[in-house]
Write a protein that binds this DNA or RNA. Structure first.
Lengths: 367, 367
DNA sequence: CGCGGCTAGTTATACGTACAACGTTCCCGA
DNA sequence: TCGGGAACGTTGTACGTATAACTAGCCGCG
């Protein structure tokens, strides 16, 4: 430890947080973060032993007494392993990238929450890739962060963006809400959106609706494609029909216009199935502007069960999506892949929440 | 390069992504990520030169011709610096922690978006700390991730959680929406919420309202404390008064109950100033259930301008908060502190958006 | 001719960790 | 008495990078 400083050995000058609230740990140097070597010195063992103990794999290699000594020394010094060094050594970073179209959509915020929760349980970190425009798909998730990732979880990616993802890195990839048959990824996590559409359709049929319109999202992802197909299939063979379909960007304002087009055309539907609660909100506004009451003159259903759904009046009948669970399962799947285990690829159930925006059709329309 | 493998020199076995879509770069080994040494070999220079060139500080140290050679070699190999190694060497990670109460509140999602945008411009990463409960303040942002952070940006922290933050790490800290006078942090970014309240009050006074109630958020953070004080100050010396204040958790359902208490008490206010759009939504529901029309019988204002604000009917008059700008300025401030520059501590302007939920009070109430 | 000063590099580390391979005791049975 | 293990550690790297300190030409000037 004497100053045997050879040429080219000057350490990079750390800014040293300057005298302030530094807790002045019992550590060796002064204000610097303690390293495993400091702990070793403190516990009078070698650095390797500290590493073994802290790594938890000391069974039969270190005596319980020594292990305890090391642990308390680490505790006393406030030691925390340096993640950069660990990553460098292991070649893994314990960090996952979560790619979502827009965090400002509550669904994705919830997906993130779920993924983060599971990640935290496994000492994993989550980095978000925010889409440039806030609505479009992600474009280049691989900035300089790329080398620091162990895997990618991507939600609702458009095909072209997906291709870029595959091209860019050979990182393990888990897809959420994406075509499980496309073979892009070893693992997928999906919602049983088709069943949600079936539930919505069944609910409306049961109430007596026959002329049903579809307000679809103008987004070219698999999960939205499923919605349209499922609705048609659910009505096939029943007395109900999809009388009209309009597509709209995912905003209340745009949905208002699209819904207006639907409601002004003949024959006017008695129920409107919307791909998203935001669209349903727009539809409700459109109806009111045309002098139609919801649900007396028009029933409306959404998908998501955003907080918006209960803020509206009437409250929205909607298909609740277990967003957090999607994120959590996605992270579990990624962890499984990283572990070399085979990931389950669940399809999570959804549930129709019946509220005030659906009712029997107007009397003159009843069959 | 010959196999001069000394004892204890076995490299950690990397899983090797297995023959698949690996682009088979022109690199030296095979499937492993190319390092600066690979680039050096390719360009027939030393590793140090590669580092200099890639680091951008080669002015006067490397000839332009050599620099170009290095750059194209790096390009050809698809070289990307290993962030773990860089972090280890530099002692910095280029990663910031963003602590927010709940991402599912759109305001914080937008803060995150802004912070991420600025971070990306500076090759910085953002890690989110999700609150355990989704609504309460963050508790222990320092898991094993702690060592991998350069700084912290914290929004709307309750005092006790703030203390934990200060205790835990001596990391640079930027506070958002927090008391700039508390001296907890070298830098703060704030909204001129007080002015927002003044604008709302002035708007209501101008419309003729005199009996105004306050539906406050039941959250003990500085920014919500300011709202109450500012409203009272804005009405002081005018003909208007705050006839009643109720506090409510930040949810539509809770706000409905709190607003009901306000509206059932005498004297009934003609206008209701709410601390958040969510509360305003609850207030509108409450009014309608009591048979009051908005805005004819009751004017309502919110704060935030969530997408919810225009989904409701009538659309909400609300104080628009530049959330993204808050996040962006917060990240700029943190970067400044990390650079040793003094951070500006801006107070961002807010703007009242007049929409359908406010109007003149009922005729019999007019002064 | 010699030497300072520049240019254009190279060499030699160290950052903090994890782990393979190598001691060192100590005990036990033959 | 001695060989053979366990049991318990330690030594010695290497991961990939950034940078201080050194070096080899080369020019020009005294």
């Amino acid at each position: 430890m004497a100053s045997s400083r050879r040429p080219g050995t000057a350490p990079p000058s750390r800014p040293e947080p300057s005298a302030d609230g530094s807790p002045s740990r019992g550590g060796t140097p002064s204000g610097a973060r303690p390293t495993s070597r400091d702990v070793a010195r403190h516990a009078e063992v070698s650095q390797a032993t500290v590493s073994l103990v802290m790594g938890g794999k000391w069974q039969g290699r270190v005596s319980p007494r020594t292990a305890e000594t090391v642990r308390s020394a680490a505790q006393a010094l406030g030691y925390r392993p340096n993640l950069a060094a660990r990553s460098l050594r292991l070649g893994r970073t314990r960090t996952a990238l979560l790619v979502v179209p827009a965090l400002t959509h509550d669904y994705f915020a919830r997906v993130h929450t779920g993924a983060s929760r599971v990640a935290a349980e496994h000492d994993f970190g989550v980095v978000l890739y925010p889409s440039p425009e806030g609505t479009g798909p992600a474009v280049d998730p691989f900035g300089s962060a790329r080398a620091a990732l162990d895997g990618v979880i991507a939600s609702s990616m458009a095909p072209e963006a997906l291709a870029a993802l595959r091209d860019g890195g050979q990182l393990p990839l888990v897809m959420l809400d994406s075509d499980p048959g496309a073979g892009h990824s070893p693992a997928t996590v999906n919602l049983d959106i088709a069943d949600g559409m079936r539930q919505a359709a069944a609910h409306l049929l049961e109430l007596g609706h026959r002329r049903i319109a579809h307000l679809a999202a103008e987004i070219d992802t698999w999960t939205f494609g499923v919605r349209a197909r499922a609705l048609h299939e659910a009505l096939a063979g029943t007395s109900g029909t999809v009388v009209r379909t309009e597509r709209s960007p995912l905003s209340v304002e745009d949905a208002l216009h699209a819904a207006t087009r639907i409601l002004e055309a003949a024959p006017r539907p008695t129920a409107l199935v919307c791909d998203d609660d935001l669209l349903a909100a727009g539809a409700c506004k459109a109806a009111r502007r045309l002098g139609l009451r919801v649900p007396e003159d028009l029933s409306v259903t959404g998908i998501d069960d955003l907080s918006l759904a209960t803020a509206l009046e009437p409250e929205l009948t909607t298909v609740r999506l277990p967003a957090e669970e999607v994120g959590a399962e996605g992270m579990r799947a990624l962890l499984a892949v990283l572990d070399g285990r085979t990931a389950s690829t669940p399809v999570l159930p959804v549930e129709l929440i019946r509220r005030g925006s659906t009712a029997r059709p107007p009397r003159e329309e009843r069959p």
